[in-house]
Computed example of a mutant assay.
Amino acid sequence: MSKPILEVNNLRVSFKMYAGEVQAVRGVSFTLNKGEVLAIVGESGCGKSVTAQTIMRLIPTPPSYIKPGSSILFDGKHEITKLTESQMEHVRGEEMGMIFQDPMTSLNPTMTVGAQISEGIRKHQKVTKAEAMQRAADLLTLVGMSNAQERTRQYPHELSGGMRQRVMIALSLACNPKLLIADEPTTALDVTIQAQIIDLLREIQKKTDTSIILITHDLGVVAEMAHRVIVMYAGKVVERGTLNDIFYNPKHPYTWGLLRSVPRLDSDRNNDLESIPGTPPDLFAPPVGCAFAARCPYAMKICKEVDPEHFDVSAEHSSACWLMHPEAPKVEMPVQAGRGSHG
């Protein structure tokens, strides 16, 4: 089997604030294989976007800093945590691309979309201005925009939200990156356009064999695209597995809660969706034990005293929960927690 395109090991990222240290990412580890779509899910503030932006080295330093012992190995040769900003500029854009949450604030309002796409192409590839602009038009065609030549001469405010998101995707693909990070790519779009963007990303991934990290809290999007899933809570990975593992055989109570909060067409409980009671912990002072213990209906004494390690369910599936310990009481997964969630 070929080596992973990305290996993240013990990633810890903190923010130095006036009131103290916010431990945003606390020991995250995962791998991404070539041509794979890996989804990172969790509620707002769990650290998924900070993880993604750290891989691209886009978080502001200061106030953020990557703690010693963290490792992000890209393509088997780039240790991202140790690259200078100059070195990172060659990797970013040329080998990595990113689709941001809000295209209106990510695109330059004073430049035409063609100029913005061609700028990155000319920076990383030895082409003329005319060749770069033609490549920009080709990319707009690839992402499903009609009249591509005309669109290159338009400004972001002249385009709809869905069209701006397509421009963002074209920008991220400008230099044929090996890794594409999509951070909430459908958040600001209506349902119809969301479906079009998901279909577009799937089609591009199949055509280019690009590896994708999908950051989202929308489990419907995950079900449509992902091969593997990482569930994050309070800056840590609490469960990881294949798409089927997470949707049909989840093992962590937090994952159960996420799945039970999703509306479903095949259930009569849609009028009574369940939420997870309580609030996430304060990452200025994370709890000693399991971060989810205060909100977990199955919490035991050890949960509040010792942070659990990952227990293996299978070769690709693990859960950081003391309920997985051989001596723990047997707890059945809540009825219909994930059954049919992506049907």
Rank of each mutant, 00 (worst) to 15 (best):
K77M: 03
Y254A: 11
E89Y: 00
L189T: 06
L258R: 05
S71Q: 15
L38S: 10
M163N: 00
Q205I: 12
E316K: 09
V221G: 12
E21M: 14
E79M: 03
T31M: 11
L258E: 04
G340K: 03
I72E: 10
I230A: 14
R166L: 03
K129S: 12
A136F: 04
K126R: 15
I169G: 03
K301G: 00
T110H: 13
T81V: 15
Q23R: 15
Q87K: 04
E274R: 14
E79A: 09
Q134W: 02
E239G: 07
V37C: 15
L58C: 06
N9Y: 03
M145S: 01
L73V: 09
L180M: 12
L219E: 08
A148L: 01
I198T: 13
A130N: 07
F247T: 09
L189W: 09
F74P: 10
L140I: 02
K330A: 08
D218Y: 14
A293T: 04
C290H: 03
A174T: 09
K207Y: 02
M333D: 05
R57Y: 04
I198M: 14
L6Y: 01
L142W: 01
S64V: 09
V13Y: 07
S49E: 12
L201F: 07
E203L: 08
P68Y: 13
D209L: 05
L259C: 11
D209Y: 06
G338H: 03
T110N: 14
A226R: 13
N244A: 15
I197M: 09
A148P: 10
M324A: 14
V229A: 11
I276A: 04
R12Q: 11
L6V: 01
E224G: 06
Y298L: 02
C303E: 01
Q154Y: 00
G220P: 14
V313S: 05
L173V: 09
K301M: 03
A24H: 07
I72L: 07
E239Y: 10
D272K: 11
K207Q: 15
S14Q: 12
M88N: 07
G241K: 09
G161Q: 01
I80D: 08
A294I: 01
A195N: 11
W256G: 05
M88R: 06
I212Y: 14
K77F: 00
P263C: 15
